[in-house]
Amino acid sequence: MKVFTAIISLVFILSASKAQTQVLPEYDTYDSLSAAVFRNNDTTYVINFWATWCAPCVKELPYFEAFNKKYKEQKFKVVLVSLDFKRQIKSHLLPFITKNKIASEVVIMNDKKYDTWLPKVDASWSGSIPATYLVQGDKKLFAEREFANLEELEDFIFSFSKYK
């Protein structure tokens, strides 16, 4: 009976841990995020700042997903930086990613001292989201705007980095 209970609890533990495999990288500072995400090479990083509570962000997310799918073999890397509230990561962010089968890389930015890190991304950023940031080596392009479709996003990205 004891062995049986042990097996049952082991099964429970294993299945519980399996359900929790969805672990996203979390960063407490912008410096640690940029150190982990950016490589100084010829890859163009397409960084989208978003959150599940931000309706226009959620609306444009499919275009970033489509871009990722179309160009991921072409030295483009899409990274979706979630600015979701800490208390909503489990309740909102993770289920959203599962439900919408988000394939692009998602990372969580936990630094809530916005005034210290928003200017590091771009001096012009007032703080509204969505906002998109392109990085390739030392080149940078920032836009505090939304994209209405994949074509608009492609135009923006290819104005910065030619599609090879």
Binding site: P56, Y114, D115, L118, G127, S128, I129, E144
Partner: peptide, 16 residues
């Protein structure tokens, strides 16, 4: 001082 600070917020909603 500071006279300007930055923070995350929702974009202002306008018709496209």
């Amino acid at each position: 001082v500071p006279a300007v600070t930055k923070a995350i917020g929702c974009s202002i909603k306008v018709k496209s």
